[in-house]
């Protein structure tokens, strides 16, 4: 089998730092498997999208592995959240998001289409067809580890915003989260999430 298993977190460890205080990170353009939707976290639509995203991610990886192509670890779930106003004022079922799994650059559209076709052949839910490959370029970001329930992220974001202002920067969004813990079992006060906010000169 060619080379060792690739771990993108190790390869790009500068982009996945988990500081307890806000810091600046420089990110390079990165390729993701992505699926967009609207609805409350935990809603049927949200869960179906997570399922579809993982199904495509696993199928691409395993198909390549079987063909003895470069192996890699499937990354953790990430999400971008698009809020036009303070999320506390938007009903949760109107929340808009894009769920992501970072994927090596050598994965291409043919891999994706083939995986989707295989999954549909096995009658996996139609959401797999909505999973796309997408390159996101966030450039300079403020980043910080949030420990605790998701509904207290605004406290961490406030620290990040203050830090950005100090540096003469403005958070321009979209808000990006990298889920390090499994919310199904981890007690809310122990949930670890990397928060990333793209920032530009103000």
């Amino acid at each position: 089998m060619p080379g060792q298993k690739i771990d993108l977190y190790k390869l790009y460890k500068d982009e996945y730092v988990t500081p307890r205080k806000p810091i600046l990170v420089k990110t390079k353009p990165a390729q993701y498997l992505a699926i967009s939707g609207q609805g409350a976290p935990g809603s049927d639509r949200f869960s179906a999208c997570i399922g579809a995203l993982y199904a495509v991610a696993f199928t691409i990886k395993m198909t390549r592995k079987f063909a003895r192509k470069q192996d890699y670890a499937v990354c953790k779930l990430e999400g971008q959240w698009f809020f036009e106003a303070d999320p506390a004022r938007i009903p949760m079922d109107k929340w808009q998001w894009k769920l992501l799994i970072r994927t090596p650059d050598f994965i291409n559209e043919t891999d994706r289409q083939q995986a989707v076709a295989t999954l549909r052949e096995k009658r996996k839910p139609h959401e797999v067809e909505e999973v796309k490959l997408e390159t996101i370029n966030e450039g300079q970001c403020v980043q910080m580890l949030h420990i605790g329930p998701y509904d207290r992220e605004h406290e961490t974001i406030a620290l990040m915003r203050a830090f950005a202002e100090q540096k003469g920067l403005k958070l321009v969004g979209p808000h990006h989260e990298i889920y390090l813990s499994d919310p199904r079992r981890t007690p809310p006060e122990r949930l670890k999430t990397i928060l990333r906010e793209p920032a530009k000169k103000s």
Partner: peptide
């Protein structure tokens, strides 16, 4: 095991 199932599209989200 995962490789053999995965390439067949048998590893879904659920």
């Amino acid at each position: 095991f995962m490789m053999l199932l995965g390439k067949e599209g048998l590893l879904g989200g659920d």
